[in-house]
Amino acid sequence: MTSTSPPVRVVYTEAVEALAAAVVRALRSADDGFRLIDQLRPYTRHKAGLAALRVLGPDALAPFVLGGHRLDEEDVEAVLLSLRVFPAPSDGPGAEVALLQDWATSELLVRLGVDQLRLFPDGFVSVPEQPGGVWPSPEREWPAWGARMARLAGLALPGLRCPVYYQARHHPLALARGVTRAMLRRDYPTAARLVRWMAAVEASDPSAPHTTPATEAGTTLQIPPLLRHLQIYAGREWRSALDIELAEHMVGLTA
């Protein structure tokens, strides 16, 4: 007898999309209660739900940080379990993203009232000063610089301050070039991630260049038309929809 279950990888991918969808819906409406634990229930056979939680990392907490939902004890336990079950890789391409996302998750949990000692009893957690060593030059190597910023877009959340945030803030032209390149390549997921950084900078710094309405010379990008465009072209992919939704929240475009 052959199994009709989909391959594990498919289940995991779907779990990430489903959790992203739930987070988007929770951000759009604070009326219905949102609990992380409810999102994990369909995945009792696999650890896919926990893996999804691990992949989304700090984004999974956005409904509590931004959307007015209340984080309860079971949800905290679920997040901590996901970190234990899927420890961050210590090297390889995913290591930097995992390390910084874990830092961001812990920051948000502490902000939501969770005791820091519960999170990392071994005494983890300060932001790495120079994540991943040397950065590509935002002037000469802006495509590589932008690709790295896109991978780290999970850190683009209100109030999170780390070296990656300052990269975004100090290099608006490189960021805008990265967005423009991704848009022209129709790589909308990357574009959405980079626009999210633009939104995070604008949200944190009213004098940041992106906040000016298109300058006469058009050397900065306006965020609202980008987000509308992305919503139409990429809004059906839930992870991109989540990036777009968070960007809209940060620049105050949500209803």
């Binding site: 290099h171 032209l173 004098s207």
Partner: peptide, 12 residues
Amino acid sequence: MTNQRPDDGEID
């Protein structure tokens, strides 16, 4: 109206 080009990127 700002027209900042803080990291104006060309090789001069």
